[in-house]
Amino acid sequence: MNQQLTRSQRLSRLDVKASPYLYISPFFILFFIVGLFPLVYTAWVSVHDWHLIGGQGEMVGLTNYIDVLQQPNFFKALRNTFSIFLLSSVPQVLAAIVIAYLLDTNLRAKTFWRMGVLLPYVVAPVAVSLIFAKIFADQSGLVNAVLEILGTSPIGWHADPFAAHVAIATMVNFRWTGYNALIFLAAMQAIPREIYEAAIIDGANRWRTFFSVTVPMLRPTIIFVVITSTIGGLQIFDEPRMFDTLGQGGADRQWMTLTMYIYELGWGAQKSFGRAAAVSWLLFLIIIAVGVINFLITRSISSSSSGKAGR
């Protein structure tokens, strides 16, 4: 009897100790099968002279890294990536929080509104690219036609780097704002209503409540959205590629992003798999660095405002 009890206690202790690892193991097992090999393979490729079709050549150490760091196109791609990233993520996250806040009210026909904002996420890319091509066409496009009516000069959506970045960011925001709004909404719904009640009793108005209750309580979700959109934003590929029919980022590469640069190096005219792999690793490190910075900024902002709320 006594022995049995200890055995079950021991089993229970094992349960407590092992279960957390067991629960997270599916992710790691799968990662070691389908994620780790590509990562190691890419690192291996990046230190070789490696033609996409011709295959492995001599080991060249860090030559590929040094080569791409001397290419003006690398820095152009870096600039474009950050510019499009900032133009898309910042307004996107802000708009998503506001839309989520509106959706969090006691609306009539809730399902309709919620699913309505998510619609852009399901539209096939071929339809999206066609529509935006018509909107941002330089000569026959909708926006320039409107500008003409208003009497201003048309914008060179493809010629001017900044205009191109704005147009691409618009495509990104169109697709992902509703998606992020629903993520925020799910988190807002989990905020206990008593806290709002308390704020209202304290005499806080709607916007006060929003900034002193909602935003601090959303902290983990804001961190989540900021980090995932940092990662997604710095890897942006589809939208700038679809921005014209050639898909190389413009004659001056004025909207070529880093992932497009990887593609151009590896699959384009050069077929230099080695250099493409080197840029991949550089991009990986850049994303990690920016992710960490964003994490620290977000954490300090939302904890300082939650400090105010806690008063």
Binding site: I99, L102, N106, F112, L119, V128, I131, G178, I200
Partner: peptide, 28 residues
């Protein structure tokens, strides 16, 4: 306490604009 009273028309207008923009590509 009125935390969850029905929102005003401004909220509906703002959301309607968002949904309209979202819906246009499907309609197109």
């Amino acid at each position: 306490h009125g935390v969850d009273k029905r929102p005003g028309w401004l909220t509906y207008c703002a959301l309607a604009a968002v949904v309209l923009i979202s819906f246009y590509p499907i309609w197109f």
